[in-house]
Design a protein around this nucleic acid. Sequence first.
DNA 1: CGACGCCTTGACCCCAGTCAAGTGTGGTGG
DNA 2: CCACCACACTTGACTGGGGTCAAGGCGTCG
Lengths: 238, 238
Amino acid sequence: MGSFRLEDARAANRAAPLSKARRKADAAADYLQNSMACKAEIGSSIRNAAKGTVIYCQDDPASVRYEVVSGVICTSYLFADGRRQVTGFCFKGEVFGTDHGFYKSSAEVVSETAQIRRIRWGDSADDERALNNALELVENSILLIGRRTALSRIAAFLVDLRSRTGNAHWIPLPMSRADIADYLGLTVETVSRTFSQLIRKRLIAQPKHHLVRIIDQDRLNALAGMGSDTNPPITSEP
Amino acid sequence: MGSFRLEDARAANRAAPLSKARRKADAAADYLQNSMACKAEIGSSIRNAAKGTVIYCQDDPASVRYEVVSGVICTSYLFADGRRQVTGFCFKGEVFGTDHGFYKSSAEVVSETAQIRRIRWGDSADDERALNNALELVENSILLIGRRTALSRIAAFLVDLRSRTGNAHWIPLPMSRADIADYLGLTVETVSRTFSQLIRKRLIAQPKHHLVRIIDQDRLNALAGMGSDTNPPITSEP
DNA sequence: CGACGCCTTGACCCCAGTCAAGTGTGGTGG
DNA sequence: CCACCACACTTGACTGGGGTCAAGGCGTCG
């Protein structure tokens, strides 16, 4: 079940990033079936998956959640009119697919390759941690998406990614511009233009399309509207 | 602790809807302290609170969560630069304040009056239900906020509120235009204009500022980009 | 090599932000 | 009882940011 809507939306959606993913998913279906015991994790099943692999589809029955071992996962929601809202990106150690009953969004691998661990519900301590993790991620997303200007959104997006990937200056951006656009509520063109703008202003560098180096963290923070933690930009009246 | 940021932001924020709330909160502080045993709920403490009452502040230590018994609660996050992002509205039966460690947002009563129930963490079945409830609400918010046009956002906002309040046609809108604007990432003027537009087009009626009647649910759904559930707007190619 | 996807850049225009003024409405004090 | 004010909301005029349409670069695959 659950897939017919995806097909409909694919037909209607001009960009249709999931269509390719869907085809790849079909091809790699059985590949997904057998879990790869890569590094002999303790009793849990870890899967290898290539870019474009769909982990689960919107409206599929939800039985397990997943943890990202390596790579990046993108979860997205397809509207009936074909528009797409990317609900989040998941990096190493983060959890996705925490829905109850049916998955409300689809999950897709956006990095070249990814390892994900299936986790069953039942251990209440673990379950609660997972839910809290998911909640935190989504709440963070709201603070990103609610911003006014494209510049502020992109800046906040980069700042968020930097803190989550734990990288000092280099940020991997395996997702496509369309993914970022659908996440931040912008268009591909605006995303591209804004990146170019940040590069021109020497706030970031971009040796490859999918790799960003943060040059001026402070000014990026300022654009993101977070201020420098050590030097709050607000002076209260006497 | 936690309140100094609020004060700072108050000084900087032109609209500063929390400033009034803050003053009211001070005045009604002791009122809040003693829980009112209104209808003798089973062993849980229910409080009455008037409009503007702040339940908790951003960065306050988080020990309990809350359930709305009656009225409407608004949770919002204040940025260092004074901007405000409303993270959600909570109606009867919904849960807020599910943060761990410290509250990441402030919670305020926006209806004329509200009853809220304090709930301690510990009952894992209950805890998990609460977390799932919160997660669902926040994920829904993302689908609202990510929309492109103001018309689409307002329409989706109304459709969402209608389904959550369980009301057939009449929707209570106790929150201010500023709250709605800060929720959807718009300005008060745009919110006001959009409501007027919907009224002119006879999609809704608005006998009072804080009450909306949905006249044409189908067209509202269409604007919201959800289509009519019985008649999907997408035709798949053969 | 050409076809295709993805990304970038440019030109144009419209939606929504900004500034400013006007309209209730409730509260306070004379 | 009315004058006055404070506040929330509405409406208008103007402008700029970003959506839209279109063209062009660039790497990958067949």
